[in-house]
Amino acid sequence: MSYEPPLPPANLPTEVVNTLNESTPEHLRDVATYAEELAEHKEREARLEEEADQDEAEKRPDDLPDAVPSKATITVKEINDNRYYYWQWREGDKVKSKYKAPVSPDE
């Protein structure tokens, strides 16, 4: 082990380096343990979020327009004796709809 102090990573903020340089060995060990656990936690959260995004993409119907959330359901509306499919979903207290296609006569 060298008698020279270690060089901090270049991307570490100066305030953090100064605080660490002023810390006791016991506090530095506590910081190291906490930093490792925090890094693992953040990596796990990012991985779970990525998996959720992938699941969302896999569940998304192929014919779902980009402006329509994947939680939308298809509903049939009758207008002037004609039937139409609409994507429908809730945003807060409002129900939103987007036209999909006419209902074919054999349905």
Rank of each mutant, 00 (worst) to 15 (best):
A46F: 05
K77Y: 03
V103A: 09
I79V: 09
E50G: 00
E49P: 00
T19F: 04
E22D: 11
S97A: 13
P8E: 14
H27Y: 03
P8T: 08
R83Y: 14
D30L: 10
E78I: 01
L28N: 04
N80C: 04
P13M: 03
Y85T: 09
T14P: 01
A39D: 10
T24Y: 09
N82L: 02
L7C: 05
R44Y: 11
E107W: 06
E58D: 07
P8F: 15
E37R: 08
S2M: 06
Y86T: 04
Y99G: 06
T75L: 00
T33W: 13
V76C: 06
V17A: 02
S104W: 11
V16L: 15
N82I: 02
A57C: 01
R60C: 08
K42F: 07
L48V: 02
Y84P: 00
D53S: 04
S104H: 14
E51C: 01
L48N: 14
E91C: 06
Y84K: 02
N18P: 00
S70K: 15
Y99C: 03
E49M: 11
T73E: 12
E50D: 08
E56G: 02
E50N: 02
L12Q: 14
P13D: 09
E91L: 07
A57Y: 01
P65A: 04
T73G: 06
E37H: 10
A57E: 15
T33H: 11
R44G: 02
K59G: 01
R44S: 13
S70A: 05
S2G: 08
L20Q: 06
M1L: 11
Y34V: 03
D93W: 05
E40I: 00
A52V: 05
P25T: 05
A67R: 09
P8M: 12
L38G: 00
R90T: 11
T33I: 15
L38K: 14
D106N: 12
S2I: 07
L64Y: 08
R47V: 03
A46S: 12
R47E: 15
D106C: 01
Y99H: 05
L64F: 07
L28I: 08
K100V: 04
K77M: 06
R29H: 08
P105D: 15
M1D: 12
A72L: 03
D53L: 11
D30K: 09
P8Q: 10
S97R: 15
P61K: 07
V31F: 07
Y84V: 01
K96S: 07
E91R: 07
L28C: 09
A10S: 13
E15K: 04
K98P: 00
Y85H: 15
K59Q: 15
N82V: 04
E4R: 14
V103D: 13
E45V: 14
E107C: 04
M1F: 05
D53M: 05
T14R: 08
T19S: 08
W89G: 01
A52P: 06
E37L: 13
R47M: 11
E22C: 08
Q88P: 02
A72T: 03
A57K: 13
P5L: 15
L7E: 14
K77C: 04
D30H: 07
H41T: 14
E45R: 14
D55W: 01
E58C: 02
